[in-house]
Design a binder for these strands. Structure first.
Lengths: 200, 200
DNA sequence: TATCTAAATGACACAATGTCATATACATAA
DNA sequence: TTATGTATATGACATTGTGTCATTTAGATA
């Protein structure tokens, strides 16, 4: 998403810009963040910024994308490890994600992201592209679920995704530990699993 | 939320300001909407706007609140009508809401609202206050559910709410009819209900 | 060394925000 | 009626931020 130019400048300068941006997006949510602050902190002229990025949103999503790719990758890894158990995979994904966003270096940054995350944007975090959805569908073993077609699987993924995101956001409002948050997520998933898991 | 002053001015002027705001919030999402446009359209001086509302957000939420109160009220009505069936109540709520937001007069306005709705804000639409959550809990008949305590009910409401919001937002992305959207919501809810409903 | 192209730079025009000193309207009391 | 006080109205203004563009600089190639 950033312009070619940005990829070509020295790594050191790239880092300076990205760190300044993360600092600014930690200070304020996207709509309150300012390019003025980023360039001041990164010590680059205004014109340069626009040489690298189209606008504020461009650099915001560029940084975000790195993290969301990482999260999506974790889901696919989990599906492989669990031999296609989508429920366990989502639970592991939740553990992974909640630990990631509580990393002291990024905690404030992610808090701003999540509390101001558009629904329109939330797919960035899990299955924003058709390719990803297909990967998830193909890696999932539907025999572990009380459904008879891959088509129905889409609904289940939809549900899991909704609850996943909902809980991540809630975790910022609940004033409780990471462990307790995971516990709640698992409880909610279990309530649903009683309907999803095939009864033997 | 608006300052006292706004309540005191002539109804006609109030309408002019509110209609101008709705027009502006239909034109652009909150972050791109401008007070400049609202006052131009409402034909009031800049200073007056700040006499009535703290800022752009203030009038945005003021208008939104009217609608969210209406939606919350519908949920409570449904609970009374269904004698505490929370699942049917949410399905009826979904039908009610999706019809409401497709009303031609407000369609574009709501589209902007939903596609840019923060997770932080989404509770505005359903159970933003503890009082409301309590009302819902008290009106719900937990004997219809596979749970043994009111405490667990909170998780179920959480889940229903997450899927409710997720589907409303998705309805703008799916290019299908209202009826088809309702169908999908019901399908997802049914998948869950198999785990929620008490097995006889 | 000359020439060409990509990147860097910061001044600038424009747009929007929130505030504030001043003006106006309105109510109440003398 | 007039005076006085209070609430509201008004728009000019300082401030902040945005995106652009003409110009400069750097680096590659001939």
């Amino acid at each position: 998403m950033p312009l070619n130019t940005f990829e070509k400048i020295p790594k050191e300068k790239q880092e300076r810009v990205l760190n300044a941006a993360i600092k600014e997006f930690s200070r304020a949510p996207l709509n309150e963040a300012s390019i003025a602050n980023i360039i001041k902190d990164a010590k680059i002229p205004r014109g340069s910024f626009y040489q690298y990025f189209k606008d504020k949103e461009d650099i915001y999503y560029y940084i975000l994308e790195e993290h969301s790719n990482d999260i999506r990758k974790n889901l696919l890894d989990n599906l492989i490890k669990t031999k296609g158990d989508i429920v366990i995979s989502f639970i592991e994904l939740y553990k992974y994600t909640i630990n990631k966003i509580n990393n002291p270096n990024y905690k404030v940054y992610f808090k701003n992201i999540f509390l101001h995350l558009n629904h329109q944007l939330e797919r960035k975090f899990t299955l924003n592209l058709d390719d990803n959805l297909n990967d998830v569908i193909n890696l999932t073993d539907i025999n572990k679920l009380k459904i008879d077609s891959k088509l129905q699987l889409i609904y289940i993924i939809d549900i899991l995704e909704a609850i996943f995101m909902h809980n991540l956001v809630q975790s910022y409002k609940r004033n409780i530990s990471i462990e307790k948050n995971i516990e709640i997520f698992i409880k909610e998933i279990k309530l649903i699993v009683n309907g999803l898991a095939k009864v033997k």
